[in-house]
Design a protein around this nucleic acid. Structure first.
Lengths: 182, 182
DNA sequence: ACTAACATGTAACCCGTTACATGATTAT
DNA sequence: ATAATCATGTAACGGGTTACATGTTAGT
């Protein structure tokens, strides 16, 4: 949908190689935007051809050479303009909700188990988010403007996560009251 | 991802035509699972070939004939088994969060406007959810088991929506404090 | 030498979206 | 008659996922 802009956004502050980008997309920015390394390499080629990124090879001792990508002036301009374009959204799809539509006495405990696992995973993710917030965004009012935006995105993740925990608790309570079949 | 199961789930209680399914997928179940009519017709064909759905033509006075689909025994069995399979999740992708990573003095008011619009849309959606809850799920403890699952899915939507409103308020406050460039 | 990990890719497939097509009925 | 709507589709395209491919370096 907007992988190009996601990559360019990741390159605002620092030039990165494909593998570094892939790693970032499974962390920070990746909390809100997933991308596999295959997608990333393909998009990097397109963006370079388009003149929005430039690349340079970096010889490393002890590692294969990396190709470092950076935003061109044209790239920064395109990214800044994109902010004003129509904003696309892709709603989440979670098979768990669909499965709940199929709830019955037999599968209630199984679904409760799935929810319990999800709850744990979200707890871990929230610890991570909170750690980032504490270390980098403890005083939101003092942040430079752009970082306030990043802080809001992080906030969104934290609020969503907390809401999810509350929902899990409610769901587990409901499911626990359903008697197994005779 | 699981369009087949989404369609079968919609057919648990009642046999429906393609167009009715398409309408449902822009309402109730569709709150959690989007699908266009093109997808639905294609999937209906596959599911019928597979023996999970049967179809019958219904002559209507005053409308073109509709083809009504219903679950077969094999279909119900497959759906019940699917509940125990690995649960896939597709995280939401919202360009708005990405755009916030690009926040600056110039675009802050534009982004605030976008968030205000989103807030309104979510308010409307929440009114709808709440209306459904009041009319059909006012006493969750007394619901038949399967409907308790549906109620939990609805609950999830409501909690998510309320969380989103809270986030919008927070974001609008932060953005309002950013001074426009000279 | 051999294995594991790193870095960069290519190819095939699936699914969802957009655009287009067809026939039938109702309203004007 | 004609336009608008309903119902059911088909075709082309694009993005994402999965699987596979290749070369390099570090560790043993």
């Amino acid at each position: 949908m907007a992988l190009a802009q996601a990559i360019m956004t990741a390159l605002i502050d620092a030039d990165l190689s494909g593998s570094e980008l892939a790693r970032d997309f499974s962390k920070s920015l990746g909390f809100f935007w997933n991308a596999s390394h295959q997608q990333i390499y393909q998009e990097l080629r397109k963006l370079t051809e388009q003149g929005w990124l430039n690349k340079r090879e970096m010889t490393q001792s002890g590692k294969p050479n990396r190709i470092i990508y950076g935003l061109t002036q044209a790239g920064r301009k395109a990214l800044a303009e994109w902010v004003y374009s129509a904003t696309k959204t892709q709603a989440a799809k979670d098979e768990l909700l669909l499965k709940l539509y199929n709830l019955n006495e037999s599968n209630a405990q199984h679904l409760a188990g799935e929810i319990a696992v999800r709850r744990e995973e979200m707890m871990e993710r929230l610890y991570l988010y909170e750690a980032i917030r504490r270390h980098h965004y403890s005083d939101p009012l003092q942040l430079p403007v752009r970082h306030k935006g990043v802080y809001l995105a992080l906030s969104s993740g934290i609020l969503q996560g907390e809401q999810f925990l509350a929902w899990c608790d409610q769901a587990l309570e409901v499911l626990a009251r359903i008697d197994a079949p005779a």
